[in-house]
Design a protein around this nucleic acid. Structure first.
Lengths: 118, 118
DNA sequence: GGTTATTATAACTACATGGTTATAGAGAAA
DNA sequence: TTTCTCTATAACCATGTAGTTATAATAACC
């Protein structure tokens, strides 16, 4: 898979509130399919499908414990998605620009002398 | 739209390489539909559809200039998506944990004495 | 007015997605 | 061996998505 295809799969997997809730649960620790399905008014096969989408995107992995198939969160793709979004920080984050950064520093620790002007 | 629906729309809009490329172009400055369509081997109506998806997600807005409908990038939703992802930083970012932070500091400036062991 | 440029909309096709129910399979338990 | 538990898979349905071509709408230009 190319990096672009990774982003396709990652963002598509995150574009569903059920799957985001599953990730939120897995952030607290690994969990079986039955545990993951419990909070939802949805059949077990539906949850298995969501898990397949998440795993295809590389956001989770599967282990084995008797009949159970506990899922575990995997961070790499989330990091890549965050990296992609970081390129657009300037469009919402006031702290982004070098000027703002400088102004913030000046406000926190105003220089006493040797101020340069132009 | 609820915050969850915003995330649905945002992540779904980002799950397509054409739309991500359009955002990358708009990050360089506002652009008309024709300008946005030029790099793609795709019909103009197809681009208009992608723009509609992006606008529905609140990632871009439309202005008017004669027949032209220049698009502009809007950062708010990108920021919300980043905020959501930030909750999972610990799963990929080594710098996240307080322990790692401390270890990094120790490595940068190793203490000369009073080293504790266990 | 007639033409040209820019963009949107409509109608259509092919395929993906998100859900269902029914069933199969693998492993533990009795 | 039989039964129970846990999970996956198959078949199906409704809807959404991504593209197409054809056409309409709007504004500028001659």
């Amino acid at each position: 898979m190319t990096p672009s295809q990774h982003l396709d799969a990652t963002f598509a997997a995150l574009a569903d509130s059920t799957r985001r809730a599953i990730l939120a649960r897995l952030a607290l620790g690994d969990a079986s399919v039955a545990e993951l399905a419990k909070p939802f008014a949805m059949s077990q096969p539906a949850i298995s499908k969501h898990l397949k989408v998440l795993e295809h995107a590389g956001l989770i992995s599967t282990a084995q414990d008797a009949q159970r198939r506990p899922r575990k969160i995997e961070g790499v793709r989330l990091g890549e998605a965050t990296d992609w979004l970081a390129e657009y920080r300037q469009f919402w984050d006031r702290r982004y620009s070098a000027l703002d950064e400088l102004l913030g520093q000046l406000q926190a620790r105003p220089p006493k002398s040797k101020r340069k002007r132009h």
